[in-house]
Every structure is written in C-alpha cells, then in structure tokens.
C-alpha cells in the first residue's frame, strides 16, 4: 500500500443548496505535513468532512491510499480532530477513557481493551504531555489541554493520515511548539498530516506542502512554490494586513535586523524576491548558502 491522499474535482454542496467547494483537486504523498490555508468560510472544514465521508461530494472522487473513503475507514487509515469538539464536557469519563475511544475501531464489538490498546493510549497521552492528567474528568481541563486530549485520541487511532482542523486556535506558544514538534515526528514516521490553520506565519516553520483554498483549491504543492505573496493575495483577497519595511531599515550597517512584534500570531515575512523568511533554519541550509554566495559575489 502506498500512502497518498487524493481529491479530484471534488464538489461539495450542503443540503441548503450552498456549494462550499467546487472542483477541488490536490494530491499529497507519504511523509508530509500539509497546511490547508484559506479565509473563514473558504471550505476548509468542509474539505475535512468530505475526506471523512461525513458529507458526500456531489461530484468528483476522493482516494485514500488508492481506496475509497469508506474502505479507508474500514482500514482505520484516517484519524480526525474536528475544529471544535461538540461533546458534553460534564460527561462522566476520564481523559484516559476519552483517549481509549480512539482504540474502539481496533477492538471487537465488546470493546474490551487489550494490553496493546492500553500501551498505545498511554503512549499517546505521553506524546501530547497529558499523561499526568489521565484520571481527570474531561471537563476539568483548560481549553488547550482539552485540545491535546483529542489530539491524543487521534494518535491512539494509529491512523496513517491525520486531519487536524485548526489545532492551534486557543493554544499558547509553548503548546503550539510542542504540537508542531509532535507533528514533525509523525511526519518522519511517514504519515500524512493535513492541518488547517489561520496562522500564516507558522506555516513555513513546519509545513512542507500547502493547499490554498477559497471555495475551491486555488493552488497546491510544495511550500516554496505555492506559499507565495501572489497566491496568498489571491486566497485572502483584501483580508490580509500587510506592512512594508522601509528599504533603509534592512541595510548592512543595521546588522540586517528588524524587530517585528505581533500580538498572537507569528508573522509571515517575505524577504528579497519574495522568498520566505524562516525562523528555524535547520534543513534550509541550501537557501542560507545561496544567500551567502550572493553576498560573496
């Protein structure tokens, strides 16, 4: 089985007649973190629901590792963390119980956990840093902690494809970084991770593919090719705030540094010729070298 996620000309309409996605086409291969980027109402959550089989496309196909959505579900290939959990937070279940629900698909109809199930649940809780909270009732957690528990449940499903709908909203910087680190290790294990986010600045830090949506897929592919100023302008229209640094502030005698403060979101910075500026430079040595060469010229 070759892991892949493929949508071709997917059109999704809601019962009220609203076509939320039209002719959406993209393809993702194994071992990738892909960002799903678009404005409010652009159809990100709708795309996730279509990938989960919660809404049936009126046109087009979705193939998951070459299988249909239904077959992929039987094979337990896909795990999904929705944008907001519509659960009863006062329900008498513990964090452990909730994460164990991620294993139900692997159990027989009596849902009796095996030693393996328990090991996976314990490991998943550890990976999101929620092990010490495992006995807590699910409502007795902060918003960010709740998000991590549901992320752990998705991990416990051992899905090869993980769909995360806005995992970073309402999450502090430390947790965001912890989640990003976790996503990286998942990618290195060869999984496909599709993350929707509004936080443009963090996209270049951890994603290698980008799917830009606005009621259709505007562009998709490697970060460097797709995450360009022009494409983003197209995806967001006038909804992006932008700020041009005066040319003089980034000259050599200033040590080439500018300070940029933002309230919550990480800023997205385009450098010379519209290339992306990264905070994390590991793995981007070629780019750094190229710039060095230019200076040497």
């Amino acid at each position: 089985m070759i892991l892949s996620l493929e949508a071709s000309s997917v059109t999704v309409a809601y019962p009220n007649g609203h076509t939320a996605l039209r002719d959406a086409t993209f393809k993702l291969g194994a071992g990738t973190i892909a960002a799903l980027v678009g404005i409010n109402g652009s159809g990100k959550s709708t795309l996730f629901k279509a990938l989960m089989g919660f809404v049936k496309p009126v046109k087009g196909q979705i193939h998951i590792a070459g299988l249909s959505v239904e077959q992929a579900r039987k094979q337990k290939l896909v795990a999904y963390v929705p944008q907001s959990e519509e659960v009863d937070w006062t329900f008498p279940v513990s964090v452990w119980d909730v994460v164990m629900m991620g294993r139900y698909g692997h159990m027989n109809f009596l849902r009796i956990p095996s030693a393996e199930d328990k090991r996976v649940v314990s490991e998943s809780l550890e990976r999101v840093g929620m092990k010490e909270y495992q006995e807590r009732q699910i409502g007795e957690l902060s918003g960010g902690q709740k998000k991590r528990v549901f992320l752990a449940r998705a991990l416990a499903q051992s899905g090869q494809i993980i769909l995360l709908d806005e995992p970073f909203t309402g999450v502090d910087v430390t947790t965001e970084e912890a989640i990003i680190a976790l996503l990286r290790t998942l990618r290195d294990e060869g999984r496909i991770i599709l993350v929707s986010t509004h936080n443009l600045g963090s996209v270049p830090e951890f994603c290698d593919q980008v799917v830009l949506v606005n009621r259709t897929v505007l562009a998709s592919g490697p970060l460097e090719e797709v995450f360009t100023e022009q494409n983003l302008r197209q995806a967001f229209g006038g909804a992006l705030r932008q700020f041009h640094f005066e040319h003089s502030t980034i000259q050599d005698h200033d040590g080439k540094t500018v300070k940029l403060l933002t309230d919550d979101e990480r800023p997205l910075v385009f450098g010379k010729d519209g290339h992306l500026e990264y905070k994390d430079r590991s793995g981007r040595e070629d780019l750094v070298n190229k710039r060095k060469e230019e200076v040497g010229e």
Partner: peptide
Amino acid sequence: FDPAHARA
C-alpha cells in the same frame, strides 16, 4: 458522549 467520533 461524542456522536461525531462514533461516526468517524
């Protein structure tokens, strides 16, 4: 508790 996950 969570019908959406049951469906998933």
